[in-house]
């Protein structure tokens, strides 16, 4: 018989449920501490970034969101300049807001690499909840969420993005942000080791 070994994976000691002291149950000291905390914040510089006029057009110049930020969508193109999308409806199926509308059709005869493509691809960004499931569902990595965070527009029609608009955004963001890909290995300056150490 081998000697009994201690549990090789000890459970983390659970914090004991301790009864509150009289002063704690009075709440007032804690309330005062809370008030002190908010009082300090009252005079802090706000985090808000003030951008106007020209800067508003490309706010990314002002502030680059962290990797993984989910902003407006864009579509990518393949090497031939065609839309990468194969109209498989996976994004539409995954979409919890049902804001992606696709119509599929057989490809023109000169597209040799595949047989179906979207004749219509619309995202209703008014309904979109920016969950990013479409990006995860896409089997050909055609749709992605850009870091664009200024989502305002003047009319409702502007927020229904069609294929051309999404592809144009893809050119704008996909290329200009080639150094800012939303993969852990693609984050500028982030080595795998640094990634590992970061929480």
């Amino acid at each position: 018989m081998t000697a009994q070994t201690p549990n090789p994976t000890p459970q983390s000691p659970r914090k004991e449920q301790r009864t509150l002291t009289w002063a704690e149950r009075l709440y007032l000291p804690e309330v005062l501490r809370g008030l002190r905390n908010t009082w300090r914040h009252l005079f802090r510089k706000p985090f808000t970034i003030d951008y106007d006029g020209t800067e508003r057009a490309s706010p990314l110049k002002y502030h680059t969101p962290r990797p993984g930020y989910r902003g407006e969508h864009y579509l990518k193109k393949d090497e031939d300049g065609h839309v990468k999308c194969v109209a498989c409806f996976m994004c539409a199926a995954a979409c919890p807001a049902e804001c992606i509308h696709i119509e599929a059709a057989p490809t023109p005869p000169d597209w040799k690499d595949r047989e179906r493509y979207p004749v219509r691809f619309e995202i209703d960004l008014l309904r979109c909840i920016y969950c990013g499931y479409c990006e995860e569902a896409c089997p050909v990595d055609a749709i992605a969420l850009s870091p664009t965070y200024n989502l305002c527009s003047v009319t409702r029609e502007e927020k229904i993005y069609n294929c051309e608009k999404l592809l144009a955004d893809g050119e704008r963001y996909g290329l200009s942000l080639s150094t800012h890909r939303y993969r852990p290995d693609g984050v500028p300056g982030a080595t795998p080791a640094a990634q590992g150490s970061a929480h």
């Binding site: 109209a87 409806f89 199926a93 179906r116």
Partner: peptide
């Protein structure tokens, strides 16, 4: 009917 439907809808 090709490419006009997706069965799960």
């Amino acid at each position: 009917l090709i490419f006009t439907y997706r069965a799960w809808y």
